[in-house]
């Protein structure tokens, strides 16, 4: 769900050790990278390395059907063009539905694949969801390794609150990190009456730095990144001057890392 805000189509690269996703957003300003290790699943089996090209918009709609207590099983057969999701319903109050999402191939003239929704209230207590797999070129490039001058670790809820609040006031934000202070200042305020800087130094902030950095970013993207805040109690902001910001959420058996290109010049 976090990725679908940034990326509409992506390949899940599956191998024996993990499931990975790496994709740029449509405007090529942000990059999202996700890894979920095999131990993060109750059971995991991958007989053959394969990419699963998935329309994330459709997948998100399917995932909304799940409840917290549901156990979700994902299956893709060899040479199959369908990703099958099965939800085990544990709640006696769960209303069973059957959904079938089907499309064959991608029509370039169609921005969204046609799908058919079938519902029944009397089917057994599980859901079968089929999402067809699109044929995309697998992303084989390596993870972009970068050394950063600063790392700021803070509670993810604080980061979410900061960028959400500032996005109400402006379109861009300048993040400056010095030895003891992180200054997050809004830019291009929509209202001149709200033009003062907003320093946000919440508790639980750890600053590691080799060099002072000052970078400007689009708040819209930071707000989208912060949607991953529920995955981890902490978020790390890694920055160097004139290179993309890395917003990293690590969880027990994986991570979601979002890169954002800065604005240059003034």
């Amino acid at each position: 769900k976090s990725c679908s805000i940034l990326v509409t189509d992506a390949n899940f690269e599956c191998n024996e050790e993990n499931i990975m996703l790496q994709a740029m957003d449509n405007s090529h300003i942000a990059l999202v990278s996700v890894e979920i290790g095999a131990p993060g699943f109750t059971s995991y089996r991958c007989d053959r390395t394969m990419p699963l090209g998935v329309d994330l918009t459709s997948l998100t709609k399917v995932l909304r059907c799940a409840k917290d207590e549901n156990i979700c099983t994902l299956k893709a057969a060899d040479e199959a063009d369908v990703l099958n999701l099965v939800y085990d319903a544990k709640s006696a109050f769960f209303s069973p539905f059957f959904f079938a999402f089907m499309w064959h191939g991608r029509d370039a003239s169609s921005p969204f694949p046609p799908f058919f929704l079938l519902c029944s209230a009397l089917l057994p207590l599980f859901i079968h969801l089929n999402i067809s797999l699109s044929s995309q070129t697998p992303i084989t490039s390596s993870w972009p390794e970068t050394k950063y001058d600063t790392r700021v670790t803070l509670p993810s809820a604080e980061f979410t609150r900061i960028v959400r609040d500032l996005s109400q006031l402006g379109e861009h934000v300048r993040i400056e990190v010095s030895k003891e202070v992180v200054r997050i200042s809004k830019l291009k305020a929509k209202s001149s009456a709200e033009d003062e800087d907003n320093d946000s130094i919440p508790t639980g902030v750890v600053i590691e730095m080799n060099q002072h950095v000052s970078l400007t970013f689009s708040l819209k993207y930071l707000v989208n990144f912060s949607k991953s805040g529920s995955l981890s109690g902490e978020v790390q902001l890694l920055m160097s001057n004139d290179v993309p910001l890395l917003v990293a959420y690590d969880f027990t058996q994986g991570y979601i890392r979002c890169y954002l290109a800065p604005k240059i010049g003034d």
């Binding site: 740029m24 300003i29 942000a30 972009p144 993309p244 290109a261 604005k263 240059i264 010049g265």
Partner: peptide, 14 residues
């Protein structure tokens, strides 16, 4: 006006 750089300019491998 600041200009927005694309992510691929920093990570050519992409």
């Amino acid at each position: 006006e600041a200009s927005q750089i694309e992510i691929g300019d920093y990570f050519p491998v992409l």
